[in-house]
């Protein structure tokens, strides 16, 4: 086996894992929703596979895996916080009315209409 080729490919893979981990952090920062859930695990998998026969992960792969895990945790916290805030808004009648008006001005339908349509689709 060509060790030079092996090391070259290993470094390439580790760098890819680092870049994907970085991209997943950006996805969390710019609040793209579920995007971080799609790309962070890919970075973690590629990072773990770049270990090869070495006892530890290459440096860049280590950062890629850590960034991927941070992105997953952070995205879960951000989405959870958003969901909690939205639930509080819906349960407050004044805020719900403001939300209904805002969405009506943008789409022609109130929030209650949208929720009803979504419920019909699921059924």
């Amino acid at each position: 086996m060509d060790m030079t080729l092996y090391r070259f490919n290993q470094e390439k893979q580790a760098r890819l894992s680092f870049l994907i981990g970085l991209a997943s952090i950006f996805a969390v920062v710019f609040r793209t929703g579920l995007t971080a859930y799609f790309i962070a695990p890919l970075g973690i998998i590629i990072g773990l596979l770049s270990k090869g026969a070495d006892p530890v992960l290459p440096r860049q792969a280590r950062f890629g895996v850590i960034l991927g895990v941070i992105a997953l945790v952070a995205n879960t916290l951000v989405l959870g916080f958003t969901f909690v805030q939205f639930s509080r808004m819906l349960s407050d009648p004044v805020q719900r009315e403001i939300l209904n008006e805002t969405i009506y001005k943008q789409t022609g339908l109130t929030l209650d209409d949208l929720i009803q349509r979504a419920g019909n689709l699921i059924r």
């Binding site: 859930y37 799609f38 790309i39 962070a40 695990p41 890919l42 973690i44 998998i45 590629i46 773990l48 596979l49 997953l72």
Partner: peptide, 20 residues
């Protein structure tokens, strides 16, 4: 565990996991 990670990435990571 790796399959769970692959599943989370909407199946894209599953190709790497299955190959491995």
């Amino acid at each position: 565990p790796m399959h769970l990670l692959g599943f989370m990435s909407m199946g894209i990571g599953t190709f790497w996991v299955l190959a491995y």
